[in-house]
Design a protein around this nucleic acid. Structure first.
Lengths: 261, 261
DNA sequence: CCATCTTTGTGCACGCGTTCACAAAGGCAT
DNA sequence: ATGCCTTTGTGAACGCGTGCACAAAGATGG
């Protein structure tokens, strides 16, 4: 964009950190924090990469985007790197977040320790159920949705977490954005549409499971035969323009009716 | 590996579906299911792409890996596509899963509707806390970790969900794998090491938040000044080879204050 | 039966991310 | 001080994923 396609901005760092690198920085930070707690002074790219579960070359390239920290022949200073990455990620400042939708998941999130630590602070819990209002969850009283805009505004919240049912997610999202939130972490199984400039990250348990199921199925299909087996007896009928909508579920051993209701 | 690098296996489909495509199939499936419930017979790539929040060309290319479903000039048959994608993802069969670690998060997962529907069935809840044993969560009695291997074996479980504290995750993982689980969905903030052939997918709230914080910081840094501001007063000192190891470990919880100075 | 119009399926090019492999840089021993 | 040894930082090649743009396919109306 602004930087064009510069591989490396000459002297200074920062401007163009690739997304993939940003996504790994928290991993490095976690590994480094663990080392820091054990008072390990320095670490090599090989060791750290191993701890973070990545390739060492990748790690070095990632760090090269931040700048030339690290000493050749020695490695990286743990404490210094912790600070630099924290700073780059914006964790040296306090980020108030709100959680909307205090059901099972929302409550679990509120109780999750990972939120409170590392620069994030649960500023408020919000739910549409009036019977929840005032009740404390994880030591924080739940507030009603009516207060949403005021809460966002008063606390200067820019990050919102949506843990509502799918049906309410877009509406909540719109209100959050309208109130000034520019980053959203969405746990509801819905595609959120937001104006430009607003970041949305999605956490979807169902999708993750389905991806696992795909690989699981592929493994199961290859293991027994040990043969490529180009086609596993295609049971399905061709598209056929005029097919009856509800495929009777006859020819297929199992119930295809994937949808519950 | 086994498949080499075939772009598309000539006539037949299936073998080489790109990971990125697999990751989107659940999205399409969800959108299609919604259409199906509204009894919409056919849908164009444009409409469906919009509903799934992706580019229409990408969607068409994704579907082309599955085969040539769809009718030119018309679009895709919703019901048929639902079935095909479900089949490709392995959702036409029943996948028993176990959830290990029934804390706040584990309980939320057990209650999560998305699990029960769409081919997944919570076969068991497992926790190390003996006081939980027998207590029902989401209608399913919690069983003790001692039973883990037997549960996996008896139910033919191949997918495990880890919702334990970080410290226990690797150990639980090893036991799951040892008992025959080959796909793991990990909610614990740890890098799991598993033998080859075992798939691990990670869901990490803390990482997602940190990524959002990064972008949020970048947005905040560009908006007010409107100037790149090449360096925000670098408070840091160079790595400095010979620093004292333990920098006053006092402020551990809050300010990193890791400046060797 | 033919013309037209819609929508799919995909060849192609581009850019990002990953990995290899190595030169440069610095500590350390002698 | 000098040479060796370790480890970083990165140039370059490769492969994957994305998006454009268009030809092929088929439905639809006359």
């Amino acid at each position: 964009m602004a930087t064009g396609r510069n591989h490396r901005p000459a002297t200074s760092r920062s401007r163009g950190i690739p997304e993939a690198t940003v996504a790994r920085l928290p991993l490095y930070l976690r590994a480094l924090t663990a080392l820091s707690e054990r008072s390990v002074p320095t670490v090599s790219s090989e060791e750290l990469a191993s701890a973070a579960g990545v390739n060492s070359a990748k790690l070095r390239k990632d760090f090269s985007y931040l700048g030339s920290y690290g000493t050749r022949g020695v490695g990286y200073d743990v404490e210094y790197l912790v600070y630099q990455i924290s700073r780059e990620l914006g964790l040296t400042q306090d980020w108030p977040v709100v959680i909307v939708g205090i059901g099972n998941l929302g409550a679990a999130l509120a109780n999750y320790g990972g939120f409170a630590s590392r620069g994030f602070r649960v500023a408020a819990l919000i739910d549409a159920d009036p019977t929840l209002s005032g009740k404390p969850v994880a030591g924080i009283p739940v507030q009603h949705t009516d207060e949403l805009e005021k809460i966002i505004s008063d606390n200067g919240v820019s990050i919102g977490v949506i843990a509502t049912p799918a049906g309410a997610a877009q509406q909540v999202c719109d209100r959050l954005v309208g109130a000034g939130v520019t980053s959203i972490l969405n746990f509801a199984p819905t595609v959120l549409s937001v104006p430009e400039g607003v970041d949305v990250r999605k956490v979807d348990l169902s999708i993750e499971l389905q991806i696992l199921a795909f690989h699981e199925q592929r493994k199961a299909g290859e293991e027994p035969a040990g043969e490529p087996e180009t086609d596993t007896a295609p049971p399905a009928a061709p598209p056929a323009v005029a097919v009856q909508k509800r495929t009777g579920s006859g020819p297929d051993g199992d119930v295809p009716a994937v949808m519950p209701a």
